[in-house]
C-alpha cells in the first residue's frame, strides 16, 4: 500500500473556545429554529396547494409530489441544460406546473367528478406511478444538482448563519403564500372557489362553473407544488423519488391545518418543520421524517377534523 508523503498543514482554523457552554447551547437552538423557519416556508407552500385540491375537489392527490419533482426537473432543464436565467427558470417551472396540473384535471379527473373518493384516489395512484417512472426514464435515476447565482458564503449573524439561497426560498415562499391567500379571499375566482368548497351543488345553482373552478384549483395547487420543487431543487438534489416524501408530508400538513384552510396549512407547514428540525436535533435525526406521520396519527385520533378546522370533515 502506498501513500503520498504527507505534508504538514500550515494553519488550523481557530475555534471560539472562549464561549461559555450555555451560549453554545443557545446558539444551537437558534440555529435549529432558523433552519426550521426556512424549511417551513416550502412545507407551507406544498400544504396550501394540497389543501385547496383536497378541500375543494375532495381528491386525495397522489400526484402532488410528482408536480413537486416536476418543478425541480424543469428547473434543472432550464438552468443547467438550456442555461436560462435562474429567476426566469423559476417562473417558467411554475407556469409549466400550472399547465401540467390543468392537463391532469382535464384528462383524468373531469370524467370522474362525482365518483367516490376511492375511485379518484386509485386513478391518482396510477398517474403517480406512471409519472414517476416516466421521469426516471427521461432523467435517469442519478441525482441532479442545480447551480444557483447566490453567493456561496452564507449570511452570518453572530454565531448563526444561513445561506442566501435559503433566505431567497423563504422570501419567495412567503410571497406566494400571500398571493394565494389574496387570490382566494379577495378575487371573484376565489369567492367562487370558497362557495364550491362549502357546497358545490348550491354554487352550481348560483351560476358558478364548477368545471372551471375545479380546473383552476387543481392547476393552482399543482403550480404551488411545482414552485416548491423548483425552489428546493437547487438547495438539495433532484431525484425521481424526491416527491414521495413531499406528498406524504403535504398530507400531514393538510390534516394538521384542516381541509381547505390556507392559514391552517401555513401554520401547519411551520409547525411540522419545527417539530422535524428540533426532533432531529435533540431526539434522533433518523426519526426526522417519522415525526410528521406520528403527528398525523395522534391528531386524527384526538381531533379528527384537524387542529384549526371548525368545519365538518368529509368521508
Amino acid at each position: 500500500m502506498d501513500l503520498w508523503k504527507p505534508q504538514p498543514v500550515g494553519r488550523l482554523p481557530r475555534f471560539r473556545q472562549s464561549l461559555s457552554r450555555k451560549s453554545c447551547v443557545l446558539d444551537q437552538l437558534l440555529q435549529h429554529c432558523l433552519n426550521a423557519l426556512v424549511l417551513g416556508g416550502t412545507y407551507a407552500l406544498l400544504g396550501i396547494g394540497l389543501t385547496l385540491i383536497f378541500g375543494i375537489m375532495r381528491v386525495v392527490n397522489f400526484t402532488h409530489g410528482e408536480l413537486y419533482s416536476f418543478g425541480a426537473y424543469m428547473m434543472f432543464m432550464f438552468v443547467m441544460l438550456l442555461h436560462l436565467d435562474f429567476f426566469l427558470s423559476l417562473v417558467l417551472a411554475m407556469l409549466l406546473g400550472i399547465a401540467l396540473g390543468a392537463a391532469i384535471e382535464f384528462l383524468l379527473l373531469r370524467k370522474l367528478r362525482g365518483a367516490d373518493i376511492d375511485t379518484t384516489m386509485l386513478v391518482m395512484i396510477g398517474a403517480w406511478i406512471a409519472m414517476q417512472n416516466l421521469e426516471q426514464l427521461v432523467w435517469s435515476g442519478v441525482a441532479k444538482s442545480i447551480k444557483t447565482p447566490f453567493p456561496s458564503s452564507p449570511l452570518v449573524m453572530g454565531a448563526l448563519s444561513v445561506s442566501w439561497n435559503r433566505l431567497f426560498v423563504l422570501a419567495v415562499a412567503l410571497g406566494l403564500i400571500l398571493c394565494t391567500y389574496a387570490l382566494v379571499n379577495r378575487t371573484r375566482l376565489g369567492r367562487a372557489m370558497r362557495a364550491t368548497f362549502q357546497d358545490p351543488d348550491t354554487a352550481a345553482l348560483m351560476g358558478v362553473d364548477i368545471g372551471t373552478i375545479y380546473m383552476s384549483t387543481f392547476a393552482l395547487g399543482s403550480g404551488l407544488a411545482a414552485a416548491a420543487g423548483a425552489l428546493l431543487g437547487p438547495i438539495f438534489v433532484v431525484t425521481p423519488t424526491m416527491g414521495d416524501l413531499a406528498s406524504l408530508k403535504a398530507f400531514a400538513i393538510v390534516i394538521l391545518g384542516g381541509l381547505g384552510n390556507i392559514v391552517g396549512a401555513t401554520i401547519g407547514g411551520f409547525i411540522l418543520a419545527f417539530i422535524e428540525e428540533l426532533g432531529a436535533g435533540y431526539i434522533s435525526s433518523g426519526y426526522r421524517d417519522a415525526m410528521g406521520f406520528l403527528l398525523i396519527i395522534a391528531i386524527l385520533l384526538v381531533r379528527p377534523t384537524g387542529l384549526f378546522s371548525r368545519k365538518e370533515r368529509i368521508g
Binding site: 406524504l248 398530507f251 398525523i296 386524527l300 385520533l301 368529509i314 368521508g315
Partner: peptide, 12 residues
C-alpha cells in the same frame, strides 16, 4: 376515522 382520513392514517 373514515374515508380519506383512514387512508392517510394507514399510509402513515
Amino acid at each position: 376515522v373514515r374515508g380519506a382520513y383512514f387512508v392517510i392514517v394507514t399510509i402513515s
